[in-house]
Every structure is written in C-alpha cells, then in structure tokens.
Design a protein around this nucleic acid. Structure first.
Length: 582
RNA sequence: GCACCCAUAGCUCAGCUGGAUAGAGCGCUGCCCUCCGAAGGCAGAGGCCAUAGGUUCGAAUCCUAUUGGGUGCACCA
C-alpha cells in the first residue's frame, strides 16, 4: 500500500468527477498529475500539481481548477484541508487516522510493506563485478559488487525477477599471461629462483598456485616447452582464481546466480552467429579506421579490420570485431554475450562497470540497440566511481610492490560485510567515495551505519524492556493496538516518514539508484532518534508508559514499524540489522 | 583533439527524472544531563546551486556555449 498513489488515485477520480459534471473539459491527459510530499512540511502533508498541469490544456486558470478540486477532495475522510497555494498547488492535510493506518499496515505486512508491483513480474538481469580472473578482488571491485547486489535487491523488492550474473573473462591473452605467471611460481616451488618477468603478474597470490601445481606435476614441466603445459596451467589457475573470487564475494554476502564463461563463446559458435546476423543487417564491413585526432598512439598504422557499424547507433566510431590476424577482438564476445542476454528474454538488462570503463558505454548501447529487434529491452549501464582509501583521515596509497595493496578480503577482515556494504552505498554511484578504515567503524552519530543500526537496536531494546514489564509486544498484538493514541505531532512525523517508504522504493528502482534507500533509512532513523530524544524531556512521548499497557502498545507499535522498515531497507542493501550495539 | 562523468553552505555530500522560501552531517556560536541508552540533545548563523544564454506558468534539475576537475580513446582484455 502506497498512500501517495492512493491519494493520487483520489485526485484523478475527483478530476474525472469534475469532467462528468462539466466543470472540467473532456479529453485531458492526467499522466503528469502528481501527488508528492512537499519540500516544506509547513505546506501540508501532500501537494498536487494537478491544477497547474491541466490549466493549459483545459484552457482554465490554475486557481479555478484548484478550488473546484479542493472541494471534491475534502469530501474524502482522509483529507482534512486542501488549500490552494503558490502558483496553483493544492496542499493537502491528511487526518491523523490516515497516518496511524500506515503503522498498522507496516506491522501487518511486515517485510513486504513497501514492496512494489511496478516490476509486474518482468525479469531483470544485473551483471556486475565481472572482474578478470587473474587475481584477487580489490576495493574497486568491492564497490561495484555492493552496488550491483543492492541494485539487484532493490529490483527484486520492486517486483522484478532478478538474475545476478558474472561475466568471466576467461579467454584471450590475459589468461595466458596468468598461466605463464603461475608457471614462474611453479618453478619457484620447485626450488628455482623466482624472477619477475616483464609483462607477467608478479603478485604473491600465485605462490600457493605454484605449490599446488608442483603437487600435481612434480618437476616434470620445468623444462618443457610452453605448448606442453600452458593449457593445463591456465585452466587450473583460472579455476583457482574463480574459487577465490567466489569465496570473497560470499564473504561480502554477494552470491551470483549465473557465471557466464567468455571462453564458452569461442567454442560454441555464438560469436560467428551473431556476426552473421549483423552482416545480414548490413552492420558489419571490412574497413580502415581513422587514427584518433590529437592523440595518435605510438606505431599507428592504417589496418583493414572487420568492423561493427556502431556509429549507426550513436557510438563515436565503428568498433573492430576481428583483428588483422583473423582473431576476435575483446569486443566480439561482448557482442555475442549481450545478444545472448537479449535473447534470453530479459525485460531489463543492466551492466555495472567501474568508471574507468565509461568509454564502453556507447558501444554496448549500440550493441543492444542493434540486436534488440523488438525494441523490448530496457538497457542501462551504471558506472561506479573510484573508492579512495583513508586511514584516520590520511590518504592510503595502494601499491602492489610495497605490499600495501588492499584486497576485498583485507577490507572485509577489518571492517566486516555489513559496514562495508552500507558505507559503499552512502554516496551516489557516480560520485567518488572516501572510505576511511577508522571512521567507518566509529560508533558515533557521525557514522551513518551506526546511526541506522542504532535506531534499529533501540527499538529492539524497547521491545525487550516492554516484554520484561509484561507487555505483549508481538506484531500481531501491536497491529491491533489503539493507534488513535498516536496523536502527537512528533509521532505523526515518524508515521509520515514511514508512509514515504513504498514511494521511495519505486523512485529508487526506477532510476536504478540503491543509494536512495540508504539515505532514506538515515532519515527514518533520524526521525526515530528525534522522537526518542524528545521522550527525554517529555515523559509522555516515551515508548513505554508506566501502568498503561494500551498506550504503551500504541507507541511501541510505531517504534516497531520503524524497525520493520529499517530491517526491510537494510535487507535490500544486504545489511543485517543489529539487535543491540556493543 | 574527441567522447563520457562531475561542479550545490568553510568541509563531506543529499536533493523525488521540472515544483513553492534549495536540505543533512561535520565545523562554528549559544543553551541543555536527577532522564525507557548523553558512545548526547535543542536552537542559530552560514548559498548568485561554476559562468553566460535559452526552453515555460516554474530550472540546482532539461538544451547550448564557456570555465574548472575526473575518466577513457584502433591491431590488449
């Protein structure tokens, strides 16, 4: 239940009513009529722009429409006043009962309060992390992982059937490099000196791999040519890297449903098929690209390649799919993969990339635009900006050579998954994020993670205290409490915030912005803390009222409803709510 | 050179796909602990939303240009 959409429905039906009465002309479009919370609470509880939106098409003055509409709306029990204001806004003030009803709805529906049906059962594919399996995940991957996972959770909550997917770049030159790097560690495990070779991965994370390879092959591969060991070393090392990646993600509570292997595309013929189809559409040709102006790469020379006509769909240049030696470029499997996602029937496809891959957005969009023949798919790409690490306010420089390279696992071991996840979402995805190892663990009001967790824990504390005092506080009982006692403006304020929750979910889901959930939870927590603090001065605002079970239950119901929403919201973000703070 | 992202209080950032007098935290100023949790609370000051145009009833939000910052730019993934 969404009180805002209900009130919008009320406004629409009032407008239709006016049409049948002849006070408003027929044939108007109500699409842009909105009912929103006002920016300033002094303006009332909700505001509608109906009069302003309709004034022009109806050829009427906004105020005339607003006044007629006002008379209609106040006939409803829930609407106390509907005042015309400003350029033609209609400010609604709702009855206390309307807000008290929200508390009950939240308690009855529990974790489902706020769930939306805007997805209407449509399916969404969210691809994220997709880091190359050539090493452990680092903090940069972490943000993408958290963002993608929270976005997936958000879309689920909004009624989509969500697939979480990881694209494994297990093909191409990089994994051969990985195999050669593992080979050097294998030699080392066999007692030979380890030398850092140009172009190989020097990281010591391959040391155990080298040892495992020694277990497997003994010293038999030491002097063998590459052709004898490359394939087996590569497969083993990739598997091992993927195992670690899976493990790290699991520690972060990220669990992918589908892992799609790039290599499988090479053998399946999917790349050829996709290109064949594009060729039939006239979107593939042999040609020579112009060198980029202003910044000519070293050793540039004109070369004939097979190109995808990405410019046809908004890209800046056409993109090579086949190298001059006949091999596929990295772009070719991407083409086939995205076509595959389209063909798998998803209604929504989302790629989550790091900001350093921003240059790929246009070509990816070109792919989907070209291959989504029915123009059915909603395709979006979200970029996550860099994470800057700090320790006690001091910038923390990462360096592989100095051994200060921070892996995802380092972060999780120091900070834990809940804090990590929440902090990563306290900033818009396209804004850089500062992550301070000390500050994120600080237990103070300045730390949003703590602030939200604390609000939840406080409610749990009230429930425990009330139960000790012999007051029944199960949700069933609370939902039947006499909520009309929640008549104080501070209490209604909390209820009003709760009423915004379903609306917030839809806004966040529509824009694919899970950070909005985190900010909302902060605001909601703030409402609860504020009410709590007022209880310090004004005893009648405390949740537990001595010797008055009925009143206590009403007030506790409000608190519990807050906890229900915080819990649901944290659930979307993949964060466990705290029962108590220690 | 081109493309994409960004620019909002002294600082760090929100801002509802165009709504009213632009918000929060930190910092600053002033008050406040006999209290279901003061690891705080309440209040106040603080703004030309980078700049200049445009679109319209209405712009931080959309368009164009400019300035300043980040990222990326064929035969690597």
């Amino acid at each position: 239940m969404n009180l805002f959409t209900e009130m919008r429905a009320l406004v629409i039906s009032a407008l239709e009513n006016m049409q049948t009465e002849g006070t408003l002309p027929e044939g108007l479009e109500f699409k842009n009529v909105a009912v929103e919370p006002p920016r300033d609470a002094a303006h009332g509880d909700m505001a509608t722009n109906a009069a302003m939106v309709l004034a022009k098409p109806a050829k009427m003055k906004p105020r005339d429409i607003a006044e007629a509409l006002s008379a209609k709306l106040t006939e409803d029990d829930r609407v106390i006043t509907a005042e015309v204001a400003g350029p033609g806004f209609l400010n609604l003030r709702l009855s206390p009962e309307a807000w008290q009803g929200i508390v009950k709805v939240a308690l009855v529906n529990g974790a489902e309060y706020g769930q939306s049906d805007m997805g209407e059962g449509r399916t969404a594919n969210v691809e994220y992390v997709s880091a190359n399996p050539t090493g452990p995940l680092h903090v940069g991957h972490c943000r993408g992982a958290v963002f993608g996972d929270a976005l997936a959770g958000l879309l689920e909550y909004a009624g989509y059937g969500v697939t979480r997917e990881y694209w494994v770049n297990d093909a191409g030159a990089q994994v051969d490099v990985l195999a050669r790097s593992a080979y050097e560690r294998y030699r080392e495990a066999n007692g030979l000196e380890f030398v850092v070779k140009e172009g190989l991965y020097p990281g010591d994370y391959l040391v155990p791999v080298g040892e495992a390879l020694k277990e497997k092959f003994g010293d038999g591969m030491i002097d063998k040519p590459e052709s004898e060991w490359l394939e087996e070393f590569r497969d083993y090392t990739i598997d091992e890297m993927l195992r670690q990646i899976r493990e790290d993600l699991a520690l972060l509570n990220v669990n992918m449903q589908v892992w799609t292997s790039e290599r499988s595309y090479y053998s399946s013929g999917k790349i050829e098929k996709t290109l064949e189809e594009l060729k039939e559409m006239g979107l593939v040709y042999r040609g020579v690209l112009e060198p980029p102006k202003g910044k000519e790469p070293d050793g540039w020379e004109p070369r004939e390649q097979v190109l995808f006509k990405a410019t046809e769909y908004g890209d800046d240049v056409d993109r090579p799919v086949q190298k001059s030696d006949g091999g596929w470029t990295y772009f070719a499997p991407d083409l086939a993969y995205h076509y595959d996602k389209v063909k798998r029937g998803f209604d929504v496809i989302i790629d989550v990339f790091g900001a350093d891959h921003g240059g790929y957005v246009k070509r990816m969009k070109a792919i989907v635009a070209a291959l989504d023949h029915e123009k059915r798919v909603h395709f979006d790409i979200k970029l996550t900006q860099l994470v800057k690490l700090f320790k006690n306010g001091e910038p923390f420089k990462m360096s592989k050579r100095a051994g200060t390279f921070i892996t995802l696992r380092d972060v999780l071991e120091q900070v834990g998954p809940d804090v990590t996840r929440f902090v990563m979402l306290t900033r818009r995805n396209d804004a850089p994020l500062d992550f301070d190892f000390e500050k994120v663990l600080e237990q103070s009001k300045d730390n949003p993670v703590f602030y939200v967790q604390y609000a939840h824990a406080r409610v749990c504390s009230v429930l425990r205290k009330a139960a000790e005092a012999g007051i029944a506080v199960d949700d069933e009982t609370l939902s039947r409490a006499d909520l009309s006692q929640l008549d104080h403006e501070a209490e209604l304020g909390v209820a009003k915030k709760l009423a915004e929750w379903p609306r917030l979910v839809e806004i966040a889901a529509r824009s694919n912005e899970p950070h909005r959930v985190a900010f909302y939870l902060y605001d909601l927590a703030s409402e609860l803390h504020s009410l709590w603090n007022r209880g310090n001065d004004d005893g009648s605002l405390r949740f537990i009222q001595e010797d008055n079970v009925a009143t206590s239950q009403a007030k506790i119901a409000l608190a519990r409803a807050v906890a229900v929403v915080i819990s649901a919201g944290l659930g979307i973000l993949g964060v466990t709510p705290a029962e108590e703070m220690r």
